[in-house]
Amino acid sequence: MKEFIGCSVFWGIGATLIAYIIGLLLKKKFKLFIFNPLLVAITLCIALLAVTGIKYEDYNNGAQHISILLTPATVCLAIPLYEQLQLLRKNYIAILIGIASGVLTSGFTIFLMSLLFNLNHTQYVTLFPKSITTAIGIGLSQELDGYIAITVAAIMITGLFGNIAGDILCKILRIKNNVAQGIAVGTASHVMGTSKAMEMGAVQGAMSSLSVAVAGCMTVLSAILFENLI
């Protein structure tokens, strides 16, 4: 059986899809933020691997084929952005300053908290790209000589948090404007947060998509400023 799973492509894809559908059903039923479909699906898949002893490698052998679509899907984020072109034109100064302030806040917060936790230079630069999309984050971590696997972990934790709590945080923090909500979620928690922003509304989704691209590029630039602080 295990041998079959090791070379089966559809097993990994099927398990991932079913886990996500269970997540969607639970969310529909309980409407509690902890029943986030993404969180539920990840937990189920990890539990499945842990219980059955199937290696991640064997699972990913099939499951990776779903993730291949991430690049075309991210490309398509241009569609909602284009649909909100009017709003983008009208508010571009607010949007650019908003994203830039978020990028600087990210750098300063990580710097201060790294001091607090007594992290060394490598650990600090490893966490530095945590708010940007994985593909840019990996590149930046490599450039700064960080631990890439941990950068990915920090990016995932950040994204998952944004995906679970993005709308709740906007409510608690009294960010009411739709454009501002999108910029906030996208700058803080990249593409995973953008999935949540899409659920919050078309405007939020579009602005969040824009933030992922702009914040990613700005973070790469800001690394020059922050790189040697620790």
């Binding site: 917060t109 936790f117 941990i150 906030a184």
Partner: peptide, 24 residues
Amino acid sequence: ALIVISLVSTIMVLAVAGHITQFI
């Protein structure tokens, strides 16, 4: 450190980016 820094900085970035955009 990984978890605390990830969560705290996410909240901070969300708050600052959102409020500055909203203010302008």
